[in-house]
């Protein structure tokens, strides 16, 4: 990230989100046309609704995009650098938590997430954080795996323990 970056303007965020919606709508329209978007003798075909919904979304998104272009960049702030940093401090560990889940299993990942949050975001001591993390994982394991027989992703640790 460059040094000039200090905030995201609302204008930029509006443009980005409108573009995202427009892109999704475009994809939907393309696929609907592929499977047939017409109205046959016995009612609409598979692609009829996705096509029109996609078209409305596309037009609305383009309109939104155009009106966002008209905004002045300095008018409003979407988020400052500090704010984004705080969001990232939650979102990135959460993303890592999800990413490692298939490898180390949900329980270990959860224990790590809880411990990380408590030491990094809260000011808990490392021992308390670690114990809380382990406690969370154990309680979750008992409730889901043993009590309600809901099978969640497990990793090497659980295999080693015989599950």
């Amino acid at each position: 990230m460059s040094r000039r970056f200090s905030e995201i303007s609302t204008r930029a965020a509006e443009l980005g989100l409108a573009a995202l919606f427009a892109a999704v709508a475009g994809l939907a329209i393309a696929d609907s046309l592929r499977i047939g978007a017409g109205w046959s003798d016995d009612g609409p075909r598979s692609g009829y609704f996705p096509f029109w919904i996609g078209l409305i979304l596309l037009l609305a998104a383009l309109w939104q995009f155009a009106s966002a272009l008209g905004m002045r960049a300095r008018d409003r702030t979407f988020a400052t650098r500090e704010e984004l940093g705080r969001v990232a401090s939650v979102f990135i560990p959460a993303a890592v938590h999800v990413a490692v889940m298939p490898v180390i299993g949900l329980y270990v990942a959860s224990a790590l997430l809880v411990a990380w949050f408590m030491t990094r975001i809260g000011d808990f001591r490392i021992t308390i954080a670690a114990l809380s993390g382990i406690a969370t994982a154990v309680v979750a394991f008992i409730v889901f795996e043993i009590w309600f027989l809901v099978s969640l992703p497990k990793g090497p640790l659980e295999t080693w323990l015989g599950y």
Partner: peptide
């Protein structure tokens, strides 16, 4: 918050997974 946010994240992932 640090505790509850982490727990909510965990519960949310379990919920979405199941």
């Amino acid at each position: 918050f640090a505790v509850i946010a982490a727990l909510i994240l965990v519960i949310c992932s379990i919920g979405a997974y199941t």
